[in-house]
Nucleic acid binder design. Structure first.
Lengths: 333, 333
DNA sequence: AGACTGCATTTTAACGTTCAAACGTCTGCG
DNA sequence: CGCAGACGTTTGAACGTTAAAATGCAGTCT
């Protein structure tokens, strides 16, 4: 394994000159640069990252805690991680995974990773209401950025990137409206999570602005399962004025709705329209395909990495728009 | 940020003694050790990993390439990554993520990460038939271990851990048999992949040993979708002697089977039994729940890390048994 | 008493890199 | 001709750690 020293000897220059050839090539005379580069190539030299990090005290590694608790994000976690990796790599960085207990208990792990110089900073996800991590990291002056707002908190401690759930619901409502639906229901969770409330608000706002009814068209599911989605859908279909469009808060609930609708002999995409959220892998493999709101993972990841590694002067709160992926479940009726 | 030097000064010993207190405590007199430890605690000292790695030329980081191509493993990737992280951490190591083009094109990325000392070795997954990575890494003498056998290759280049798909099919068949099923079908893919062939063989072997029929009870799906699973199931149900048990090669195909069965007014778990593979998150949220073969992720991860970091003298090929997670889709009929 | 042994600790040097300062050479200008 | 400044390159030191060798000291054996 070649070192700077060996390259320097080969190119007949000093060690520092080789270092400059890599980190500040403009400082070298063109002919020297060419000669050094030839030697680098010839010896197949690769800078030792540990030595570099020791000297500069920057490891170019970003910590990400792999979630251990069942959660909606899991279904698209591979997409997220891939995007995050790619974004990090485009700046010469990499992602370091670790596990930590949720909440305050996990903070010692974050602290340790940073203190031992395994990472420069963190990308947080699985943000919870009143998440304690943000305040703690800010206090320790450890760089971080959060995927997901901290809901129910008056002051926003630290930068975040999130997807505009309200706008997503709006997209779904308008799409259903354009495909001829006139009574559009919302199948959600209780308002306990900011996420649920956000998406519910978006549905109501969009319906209002289109002059569509909302009364009696919103229903809560107690858990994120097909059964619950089906139960809620059944209840709505059994009402005196049943809806012909369903905006479900998750793909799972939407699949439940699809099942119930099909069970009743109705055809999704013909008799009524159904949309989900997050465009999980399931949306593609069911039939008819489920129209769903895709999170713009590449943009999210790029923003996260940018904010973390090269913080812009302006505001560091980014709300990105989801993208409606249209499939058979919302064919024009 | 405290350094060894500062701790040494505080404890009134040499720098090396503090280093020994951490890496070889048996070398210190108990009272010295206690004194040093007190100083470490007091100054909240954490060893700088970069300096350590520079000196020892071991980074305690393991590279894992996050798959970019749609694949069955994606649905359980979060489980896998969590287990892998936890296993790595139990040996003081961590997982570094990266992206690379598939096949030979990606090898330069592996090479680079290793040459620049960002990782000590690699865990491979998404192993493909005649995967070029194994041979290449072995040639470069870069440590690695593969999750998944290299199929269709006479010599096994390098250590691997895999799940015994044939045994899994066997478990499913025997379970269906115990719950009263007597004609058990296999819903699979074409024999192009080793994985598909393995699971198919297991089904056939188990049926044979139980004296169950197999003729006309195996069917291939062209892709991994609900529609294909449903189509295959329909074809089987329409045969003169329809099966009363279905071993599907994937959860997706099994869900398709569930759908078709339900559509015909039959009740899964009552009129017939259905099993899937991999115990993806979907298996739990459908109704009835899908009986599926869970991959023992914790064991897999532990084996991978052990083989990679502390290679046992004996054979380094581990075939682990999947676990049958029984749910409503195979209630006794 | 002298030599040897074993243990606890310190000293020296090195891992491979980059920063800051110093150096030598060339150029332009009064 | 002498000097300032710019440019390209080198020197010296440091980042924080650990391996290996050296040191000092107490106890044991002959």
């Amino acid at each position: 394994m070649a070192t700077l020293k060996q390259v320097a000897a080969h190119a007949e220059v000093s060690v520092q000159t080789v270092s400059n050839a890599l980190n500040a090539p403009h400082r070298l005379r063109p002919d020297t640069l060419a000669r050094v580069n030839r030697s680098i190539e010839l010896l197949n030299y690769r800078p030792n990252r540990n030595a570099r990090s020791l000297r500069t005290s920057a490891v170019e590694l970003i910590g990400y805690c792999v979630p251990s608790w069942p959660n909606r994000t899991h279904l698209v976690m591979d997409q997220f991680l891939h995007a995050l990796c790619a974004a990090a790599e485009s700046t010469g960085r990499h992602i370091l995974l670790f596990t930590a207990p949720p909440g305050v208990d996990g903070m010692s792990v974050y602290d340790d990773l940073h203190a031992r110089r395994l990472v420069d900073g963190f990308v947080l996800s699985q943000t919870e209401t009143r998440d304690p991590r943000h305040g703690w990291l800010k206090e320790q002056e450890i760089p971080f950025v959060s995927f997901g707002r901290v809901w129910k908190e008056s002051t926003q401690p630290g930068p975040w990137v999130d997807v505009d759930g309200a706008a997503g619901s709006g997209l779904a409502v308008r799409h259903l409206h354009e495909t001829g639906r006139r009574r559009i229901a919302f199948v959600g969770w209780p308002k306990t999570s900011g996420l649920a409330e956000d998406r519910l608000d978006g549905w109501r706002t969009a319906c209002d602005s289109l002059g569509l009814p909302t009364a009696g068209l919103s229903i809560h599911c107690s858990e994120d399962t097909l059964d619950e989605g089906a139960r809620a859908t059944a209840a709505l279909l059994d009402s005196p004025e049943p809806p012909d469009g369903f905006v479900a808060l998750s793909d799972i609930l939407a699949l439940g709705a699809l099942r119930e609708v099909t069970r009743r002999g109705l055809t999704p995409g013909v008799d009524l329209g159904i949309t989900g959220f997050d465009d999980s892998p399931m949306a593609e493999v069911v039939s008819p395909g489920l129209t769903s709101l895709r999170q713009p993972m590449d943009d999210i990841a790029a923003e996260l990495i940018t904010i973390l590694t090269d913080p812009p002067a302006g505001p560091t709160e980014r709300l990105l728009l989801p993208e409606l992926v249209v499939r058979g479940s919302t064919a024009p009726g």
